[in-house]
Amino acid sequence: MAGPLPRNGPFRFQQDTPLVMGHVASKSMYYGIFAALMVLTWITVAVAYVDLGAANKAVALGIATIKATLVVLFFMHVKESSRLTKVIVASGFFFLAILVALTMTDYASRGFLPMPPGLQ
């Protein structure tokens, strides 16, 4: 997918040798990702019944993120996509991180200083 695209050149459409558009992944790859997603779902439910303290949340979100990454890279073909598409995809999650991080810095730091007397 990377590399310069032909500009203004005659594009010859040959009926007998169809151009393969992008990468055709093997069926076994899709079955493998499906199996991994199912196993991870089972793990996340099983782990939820074990008391790990604060780690329960981290494990649940960590497994969800692994699952989401597998879907994005393999089912959504981002692994085989152009660098431009990869940057666009990453930027989406980057902006989501800004949304969460900046909001949380506000709410987490509200008790740091007492309210000015006039506003109490």
Partner: peptide
């Protein structure tokens, strides 16, 4: 599907132990 992958642990698995 990805939205649900996050919704499932956040809503159903808050604290099951």
């Amino acid at each position: 599907d990805i939205v649900w992958i996050y919704l499932f642990p956040l809503l159903y698995l808050v604290e099951r132990h």
